[in-house]
Write a protein that binds this DNA or RNA. Structure first.
Lengths: 342, 342
DNA sequence: TTGAAAGCGCTAACAA
DNA sequence: TTGTTAGCGCTTTCAA
């Protein structure tokens, strides 16, 4: 600790705890206590330190503090895509329940081919107190480094058979099956299916399995030509819808595994005078706020977006504070919301 | 560096650089180099280190590394609200241009009354390499600690007269004025206005100033009873619209400073058989993807959401790498998108 | 209630 | 090309 004002360039905020200590006329350690454990220092000392802190606009270095303490107050969040409003809702739930004492470090793969391993490794470098993964851990290597990191991990969105840590969500397979069965029960027989590219998206794949299962139970032959994998978006929904109708004029219904696609198709029908659900039934997924307001109102599947994040936050708080915590699998369920489009 | 396997509890991932070094049969420093500056070590050494690293599943501590190096690879992001899709787009732009080498630490105020000061202070604790603030720095205290932190700061969304660092965006005032003038030029005289609560939202206030200015230039008396401040949302848009119509049966047009509100109102009109724009004209703000697809297509103001984030990323990259960088004020402009609703 | 010493896991500067 | 030494700015431990 020699050479305090040495030659080494002072990086960052030049105000250190030491400076506050000198100003307050106490030792560095007392400043540390006054800030983190105010009740362990005397009233007068606390006031002096607080005054010095304010005068110098001192902001402690979380980096240094957490390195010394051996634990951070960072929670890593892995998102498949920053743009998706559904993830944003879950983030809000997480942030709300985690509270002020944790910060969220958010990362998503740069480019579709980048594996989850890279993102997870980057986040683990910051030694987060916990990790929340929207979606599921795919690669074997990612699993391995997660397990050996020994921090609480929450996988969110799909209930998994073999989660790395805790799994919160609902069964995408059952949701897909229920939605398809809903359409079949209405008498539709030629039902299209639209989902995200399944290669990198376990949830999409699950919903597809559910869709196929529902067809099978009714003894309906699958139509691979009516199953589309595309990126999310309103326009994409319109395009997918047009393509499906081109491929099969007599299509009865389309199950879009995302409201944005379904709404895009619905708006297209509005413009073209295609009557929904008489000419073709449309089913969405997510129950976004607008789904209830469009004409005809969109029949869709409601999944607990905000609640997933909030539950994740609660589970992590409990784990991090060594409180007892419940299951490692939390099924929040889903709900078919019957409206007018199907 | 004594007591290596001492009594002190080993927190975090127990694998340290030292362990990799031993395994590879080289010094700690060589491992550090092999990882960060691969070209400065010999081929063989690099291979040995890489093998050891893989065997031990070593993930370096960014916390320790960055404390030692005196700079982090974190970029702090302040968002007014995690849910807002508009911010998500800007985040994506930021993430895309910043690239893999930086992580984003995202924070937003917990509760509407919490000042920006608290959020900014929390983020600065992590000594981020830079800070991106969506919106503007309000409090004097926040300004002060930002300035004294001496890191690059980007304020995004509104062009500011006196930004803390760099300001990227467009003039909300001019956008508000242009949109209103557009409606007035169409012959509308009784024009409602809907925005977010102005108390905590400088952008909303700016748009309102623009709205008032446009009225004034045309010699139209303002109607404070037709100016509403509400939270964003489709349903809220519908409610606001109903309220405005109740207050003034003869309302000609409504300028919603957010597409979600405008679309909510538009969907309501669809359901009620209110003809847009014949009965009443509707104007949005943001040009979300759906705006072009609904019936009638929504006339709105396009602002460069993604581009703002991307520009912020570019400016920061330049600053952080000491490259020359352009202006400290980047006006990305806005555009009135004329469609059918107004 | 306060302080001094040791060191968190790594990088920078310098030496070999 | 590799190794050694001295910290980064804090917290922990232990002593006063």
């Amino acid at each position: 600790m020699a050479l305090k004002g040495g030659t080494r360039a002072r990086r960052w905020n030049p105000v250190r705890m030491e400076d506050v200590a000198q100003r307050a006329g106490v030792s560095l350690m007392t400043v540390s206590r006054a800030i983190r454990l105010p009740h362990t220092v005397s009233e007068g000392t606390r006031a002096k330190v607080e005054a010095a802190r304010a005068e110098l606009s001192y902001v402690g270095s979380a980096i240094a503090g957490q390195l010394a303490a051996g634990r951070t107050r960072l929670v890593g969040v892995v998102l498949p895509d920053l743009r998706n409003a559904a993830f944003a809702l879950a983030m809000q739930g997480l942030s709300d329940t985690l509270g002020r004492e944790f910060e969220l470090v958010v990362a998503s793969p740069h480019g579709a081919e980048e594996g989850d391993e890279h993102v997870i490794r980057s986040l683990l470098g910051y030694r987060p107190a916990a990790l929340v993964i929207h979606g599921n851990v795919r690669s074997r290597e990612a699993r391995k480094i997660l397990v050996s990191s020994e921090i609480p991990v929450v996988e969110m969105g799909s209930l998994l058979r073999r989660p790395v840590g805790c799994s919160i969500g609902y069964s995408n397979r059952e949701a897909g099956e229920a939605a398809t069965e809903y359409l079949l029960a209405k008498g539709h027989r030629t039902v299209g299916f639209v989902c995200a590219p399944m290669r990198y998206n376990e949830r999409a794949k699950e919903r597809w399995h559910g869709y196929r299962a529902a067809l099978k139970r009714r003894g309906i032959a699958p139509r691979p030509d009516l199953e589309l994998e595309i990126e999310l978006g309103y326009r994409r929904g319109e395009e997918a819808f047009k393509l499906l109708r081109k491929r099969e004029r007599g299509i009865d219904a389309v199950f879009f595994t995302g409201d944005a696609w379904a709404l895009g198709a619905l708006f297209y029908c509005q413009r073209q005078g295609i009557e929904v659900p008489r000419d073709v039934a449309l089913m969405g997924f997510d129950d976004q706020e607008q789904a209830a307001l469009v004409v005809p109102a969109l029949t869709t599947v409601r999944v607990p977006r905000y609640e997933m994040g909030a539950q994740a936050g609660r589970v992590l708080r409990a784990r991090l504070m060594d409180l007892p915590h419940g299951d490692t699998q939390i099924d929040l369920g889903f709900e078919i919301i019957e409206r007018s489009s199907a």
